[in-house]
């Protein structure tokens, strides 16, 4: 349909002879547009962080949490980044197996992806708890508000991804890998890769640049 739209149709035929079948053929492009607007949402949050990220209001700063210790600990964050990267890899492996219609392997790879996601969330939770212990919460200052809102928004996406994985696994078990489920798997992997890219930007933009003197 889309391919015929761009080719010249000649003659006096005013109707198609074969009716196009539309169901699901726009899903991927629609989801892609959704991810682009989601990316803009993160861009806006980054812009707010760029603006307010230096407003510590006598409170904790990336290199000084008030006790002289740094607030940002790069090691756990780096581990998290590795977790995210690996999960993107396993997610892509899952996708490869979907393409091969190798359902069991695909679900195993997606399962590993989800477990890595869980690990990521745990690390994020630990970081937030540690920060709260030195009085660095989302209410403390504009810096921490704009920091946490990025982190939480990203975590919400990860949680959504986990829920999605569970639902998808159930659905593939129920219906097998039909057209609809395959589309969903494609969108899921697009979503997870989007999360991964966003995290890398968060890592560089928020953490690395935060501790650079």
């Amino acid at each position: 349909m889309a391919s015929t739209a761009h080719t010249e149709v000649k003659g006096d035929n005013f109707h198609v002879t074969e009716e196009p079948h539309h169901e699901g053929h726009s899903t991927v492009i629609g989801f892609w547009i959704f991810l682009m607007q989601d990316m803009l949402l993160f861009c806006g949050l980054f812009a707010i962080f760029a603006w307010l990220g230096g407003h510590y209001a006598n409170g904790p700063a990336p290199l000084d949490d008030g006790t002289g210790q740094p607030l940002f600990h790069l090691t756990p964050v780096a581990i998290n980044t590795v977790i995210m990267m690996v999960s993107a890899f396993t997610c892509s492996m899952g996708m490869v197996n979907i393409r091969k219609e190798n359902v069991g392997a695909a679900l195993r790879f997606f399962g590993i992806t989800a477990l890595l996601g869980l690990g990521f969330l745990f690390m994020q939770y630990r970081e937030a708890v540690n920060m709260a212990a030195v009085g660095a919460t989302i209410q403390t200052s504009a810096f921490l508000a704009s920091f946490f809102v990025i982190i939480f928004t990203h975590c919400l996406h990860v949680i959504a991804g986990l829920v999605w994985f569970v639902v998808l696994a159930v659905q593939i078990n129920l219906h097998g890998l039909d057209d609809a489920n395959e589309r969903r798997a494609v969108c899921f992997s697009m979503f997870w890769n989007f999360l991964d890219i966003t995290w890398v930007i968060v890592f560089v933009f928020v953490y690395l640049m935060g501790v650079l003197k």
């Binding site: 510590y56 650079l212 003197k213």
Partner: peptide, 16 residues
């Protein structure tokens, strides 16, 4: 005063 303190602790991204 707060802004001067922020500036002292300022990061590489955005100086107040």
């Amino acid at each position: 005063t707060i802004r001067a303190n922020d500036f002292k602790k300022g990061n590489g991204l955005c100086r107040p």
